[in-house]
Nucleic acid binder design. Structure first.
Lengths: 219, 219
DNA sequence: ACAAAAGTGTTATCCATACACCCATGT
DNA sequence: ACATGGGTGTATGGATAACACTTTTGT
């Protein structure tokens, strides 16, 4: 009668904008039966750590960053989702600004890489389903919260912010309407600095007044 | 090193309208350290049942009904949420039409009863927090899905439906606007019958065209 | 006849959308 | 001077919100 219980794991759907595409971080597995297949990073939850803490720990291991947007997604509890063990997995989704992050592999995995969300390989476990749910949630929350801040650098131009929205939502937005909306929400403040990286007219740089999740109608 | 893992449980927040109030079902506990306290019903997930199945099983045990609206809420994973064991709990919320249901206790509990959501006793574990999250989710989903059907009998009057919305949202709605909206959504059909229980002008009875969850702007 | 809930339309306001030109800069 | 993205305002249509009276029944 010992050990007659499911184990608990976490899985991380880590989103970032890389090369102008919405990407997720995937690890390549070493062990059978999923050898060489790709999956979301994750791991078992220890007896003395909270599930949230396990997700944060794992995120730190893979990206070496903490203090990012991290939200529980849902819990996958099918009996056969892992063919070898009974594992109930709590999925999280994270938003990071990839510019200063390099993904770190470990002995446990063959590789870790960014994949554009619309060009995912076949994934292990029920992770294909998980990716769909995560993407739907991201799109939906983009429209009524301020969580984009998780994907943005410290300061950025309004066009850059608009691009991120367009990439994720998969449609063009009207520049004037976008700016009108963003300004009316009063989430941003001007830094007073300008983007000098471009060779054209410099754009004002903005930053978020605060970087924590709020509920707001955006688009 | 054996058994060094959290266990997995489900908790059920079962909503229903009872005596014109939004209520949840609570069980009264027998065992220490929560003796006599109230909590949401729930139980451990077996090794060979999915988490969803465990939730359904538990709901059936408590209410003797199946085929109701049941949705995963979130997973509570704090280390100390249960002082005796390490239990990660997947919370669900269910909507039932209480008219034909009587709550069933069991040897495990002292009692089971409906409590109005705004008059809850102090709850065991982290269940007070859970009740807040469940209620917020119910209110929010009421506004963009058709899940009210879970709380309604087979056929009902428009005024009855409006009352249910008003009870849950905690505010009065305009009768004409409500009806305009409901009709424009085309979720209902007239049964052709009339409510003869009242002593006044009889109201048309309606039923839902289909009883499954849909995303729709309602209020 | 009266009490009580059922049923029904119109107007005003707000918000989302569509749309085009001038500006500041580096080369 | 020119090429490039930055920056700005207005007009229209659709949805939401406010609002009051007539109808049908049982007693």
């Amino acid at each position: 009668m010992k050990n007659e219980h499911p184990k608990v794991a976490v899985d991380l759907v880590i989103f970032s904008i890389v090369d102008g595409m919405l990407c997720v971080a995937l690890i390549q597995m070493k062990k059978k039966p999923f050898e060489d297949m790709w999956a979301f990073p994750g791991g078992l939850v220890g007896l003395k750590e909270s599930v949230d803490a396990a997700a944060k720990r794992d995120l730190k291991e893979k990206t070496d960053i903490s203090n990012v947007y991290l939200e529980q997604l849902y819990t996958a509890g099918d009996v056969d989702r892992d063919p070898l063990h009974r594992v109930v997995s709590v999925a999280y989704f994270a938003l990071i600004n990839s510019e200063k992050v390099t993904l770190k592999t470990s002995k446990k995995y063959k590789d870790i890489r960014w994949f554009p969300v619309n060009k995912l390989p076949r994934l292990a476990y029920d992770h294909s389903e998980m990716s769909k749910i995560a993407l739907a949630r991201l799109k939906s929350k983009l429209e009524y919260t301020n969580i984009v801040y998780g994907l943005m650098p410290e300061s950025f131009t309004l066009s850059h912010l608009q691009q991120v929205y367009e990439i994720i939502l998969g449609r063009k937005l009207d520049k004037r309407n976008f700016r009108k909306k963003i300004h009316s929400l009063r989430l941003l403040k001007k830094t007073g600095l300008f983007d000098r990286k471009t060779t054209r007219r410099p754009a004002s740089l903005y930053k978020f007044k605060e970087r924590k999740s709020k509920i707001i109608e955006i688009l």
